[in-house]
């Protein structure tokens, strides 16, 4: 038996409320936007039209979800169940959140550590997280792939990528 709060209709209801809140915030922002002289289309006209569209369909989804929830038979096996986002019970969600945290760390450490070190660290941790246990392969792959990509971008495509403590490699490669 599916609880109403576990159904897709309930998830849609929450999503529509989030969209409505976002839309109201957007409209308030646009109504307070600076006006421009000598133009037939103010800078807020297009955004307001688009946000209004979003609000209309969000309200439609809200109504559809409320009707579905009110008519829902909890014993019906055909009820669409929403995917879990339970951080405590769901291992998958925990893993996904770790990957997101690693991505955020990657962004913050990109300049100080440089691409190769930064990518090697997150690559290695994700491999370990999802069950790779051949440590030698893990170390080689997590270092080799970012290094080859850096080499490709630096040497062939002339894209300068931060290298942090490994910046000496740029001079070394330039000499070769």
């Amino acid at each position: 038996m599916t609880k109403k709060t576990q159904s897709l209709a309930f998830a849609n209801l929450i999503a529509s409320l989030i969209f409505i809140a976002l839309g109201i915030w957007g409209i308030i922002q646009m109504l307070n936007l600076q006006q421009v002289k000598d133009t037939y289309a103010q800078p807020n006209v297009f955004p307001i039209a688009m946000i209004t569209g979003m609000l209309i369909f969000s309200v439609i989804l809200l109504i559809q979800s409320i009707i579905k929830l009110s008519k829902m038979n909890l014993n019906d096996p055909m009820v669409d169940k929403a995917e879990s986002i339970n951080v405590i019970k769901d291992k998958g969600v925990q893993g996904a959140l770790i990957v997101i945290a690693l991505c955020v760390a990657f962004v913050l450490l990109f300049r100080p550590l440089g691409y190769v070190l930064d990518a090697a660290i997150i690559g290695f941790i994700i491999m370990a997280l999802i069950g790779k246990r051949n440590w030698v392969v893990m170390v080689i792959v997590s270092i080799a792939i970012p290094f080859v990509m850096w080499l490709l971008f630096f040497k062939l495509l002339s894209v300068n990528i931060p290298m942090g403590p490994l910046s000496f490699l740029k001079d070394l490669i330039a000499m070769i």
Partner: peptide, 15 residues
Amino acid sequence: EKTMLYPIILVISLL
């Protein structure tokens, strides 16, 4: 293997 493919996709995509 997926255990290697996903991290590789991620580091290449972010670059």
